[in-house]
Nucleic acid binder design. Structure first.
Lengths: 112, 112
DNA sequence: ACCTTGCGTAACCAAATGATTACACTTAAA
DNA sequence: TTTAAGTGTAATCATTTGGTTACGCAAGGT
């Protein structure tokens, strides 16, 4: 059972939950009301988000409030960010492709 | 069958493939050699990456070269980036939590 | 003309995922 | 002290996922 931030944000429902909770802390029921799926389904999503460190859950009376821990998204952010220079490159994809291919073949293909 | 960037980068093998191809274009076999799993397994990962627009595959002789299309990662980058202000907030999580809870309860809880 | 290389894909399988219903438990409310 | 509200979790299920082996085919090499 993989439990990392990438798996956590892979599901669209969980991304929507993150969005909700980034605006305000909500109880489990309050979260569940925003979705079509059943409350137990939301409960499971919240459990996964908690296990991935993306949310905290605090009991208050008989309610459990979910609040986001935005720092948990930083690893995913950094992973994607490392490719930023790539997509900001001046060279367009086709040129990059040709260059890479040349490098690739400079030893074995002598007739191109 | 979900086919979006988030699902594409959810798998660690696919993230490693992206890393490889960000350095240079490689043929399917060259990619497969870098991993423990079988070539057909890599072939499937490459197919998913292609369907998500993360790589292009160009035939050259009997080899197929995979090259990254880094721009396809931008949507995921933007999604995570929107929470950057959240994790850069001066307030620490506990204060945020208390504030949110106050807002949450300012109408119904008058005895706290 | 063969054989080899590179690769896709079908068939199959175990495990993970995402959902549901039913039930249990705890805490507030009446 | 009943009752209702809020929630977790078990049992169950269909689908997806990620892997394997086996096979087929096209393009190069001999």
């Amino acid at each position: 059972m993989r439990r990392d931030v990438f798996q956590a944000i892979a599901d669209p429902v969980r991304r929507d939950i993150i969005k909700l909770l980034s605006a305000q802390a909500l109880s489990v029921n309050e979260v569940a009301k925003k979705f079509e799926v059943s409350r137990p389904a939301i409960s499971k999503h919240l459990k996964i988000l908690k296990e991935c460190g993306i949310i905290d859950i605090h009991q208050k009376g008989r309610e459990r409030y979910c609040l986001i821990r935005p720092k948990s998204l930083i690893p995913a952010f950094l992973w994607i960010e490392q490719y930023q220079t790539l997509w900001e490159d001046k060279l367009d994809s086709f040129e990059v492709y040709l260059n890479q291919l040349q490098l690739q073949h400079k030893k074995r293909d002598k007739n191109e």
